[in-house]
């Protein structure tokens, strides 16, 4: 097998006294789709943000496409062009139209010409099914549409890797499907994807691997069938049972979990 597309080695991250990541090793191969799940505060979003160095790791090394991002001499802007990132809050540029959101980064960062950038923008809007919104402003779009534009904006840069930070968590439930459909399409096309999510159905059906994190470490890592259907660790079982059937979690259980999870 060739080198992994994403390679995280011995990663630690602290915010002051708060040790969020405590030794993460993770490899993601080319074309692989990996879903990262875990309770809130488990460090899964921080891990994702360390992969494109939006958060500077306290210790450890991060390689993407063979380039070490944690090397202080690396051109981080150039490295980030190969990594698309999709945020929970979309983060579209509100002062620009949908098309301009897609063309501005191409023109300023990749130095593409006007016509070329417009063509790439139109192609990617078509991919996410939003061609008719090309001239709209983000504020006039639904959350689901905004998130699809955000995905198109990342794709227009021609990334080799896509990172998704809880892409559907800020959406109304009925809008989640459209965004997941776009992500599924990307996965089918062979994009290397790392997805922090709570969408278990998506993880089960689309992911090649599921990683369960808790307390800043990777607790389980395996195929969806293994991790979701037959978890080996008590913490994973606990998390999954509460996630898959929130109504079943009773107060007593939650208290004991908080004591256990806090250690």
């Amino acid at each position: 097998m060739s080198r992994p597309e994403i390679d995280v080695r011995g990663l630690y991250k602290s915010f002051g006294q708060n040790r969020v990541l405590r030794g993460i090793d993770l490899e993601i191969g080319r074309g692989e789709v990996v879903c990262v799940i875990g309770p809130s505060g488990s460090g899964k979003s921080t891990l994702l943000r360390c992969v494109n160095l939006l958060e500077e790791p306290t210790e450890g090394r991060v390689f993407v496409g063979g380039t070490e991002l944690t090397d202080p001499d690396v051109d981080i802007d150039a490295a980030r062009r190969r990594i698309g990132m999709v945020f929970q809050q979309f983060n579209l540029f509100p002062h620009l139209t949908v098309t301009e959101n897609l063309t501005l980064p191409q023109r300023r960062v990749l130095r593409r010409g006007k016509a070329r950038a417009a063509k790439v923008a139109a192609e990617n809007l078509a991919r996410v099914g939003l061609s008719e919104k090309a001239d709209a402003y983000p504020s006039s779009l639904s959350g689901g549409q905004q998130q699809r534009v955000a995905i198109a904006r990342a794709l227009a840069m021609g990334p080799e890797v896509m990172l998704f930070d809880e892409p559907t968590s800020a959406l109304d439930p009925e809008l989640v499907g459209d965004v997941l459909a776009v992500m599924r399409m990307l996965a089918d096309e062979g994009m290397t994807m790392m997805v922090v999510t709570h969408e278990m159905t998506f993880a089960r059906e689309v992911a090649d691997r599921v990683v369960f994190m808790d307390g800043g470490v990777i607790v389980e890592d395996g195929t969806p069938d293994r991790v979701i259907k037959a978890p080996r660790h008590e913490r994973t079982r606990h998390f999954l049972s509460r996630l898959l059937d929130p109504a079943m979690a009773d107060v007593e259980e939650e208290t004991s979990d908080q004591v256990g999870g806090g250690t």
Binding site: D77, G84, M85, N91, P105
Partner: peptide, 22 residues
């Protein structure tokens, strides 16, 4: 909002260029 700078940086904008264009 902070997310604007993060979005620009993750698209490959340098800090100065993100400041100027976004």
């Amino acid at each position: 909002p902070r997310g604007q700078m993060e979005a620009a940086r993750s698209l490959g904008f340098s800090p100065a260029r993100a400041m100027a264009s976004v």
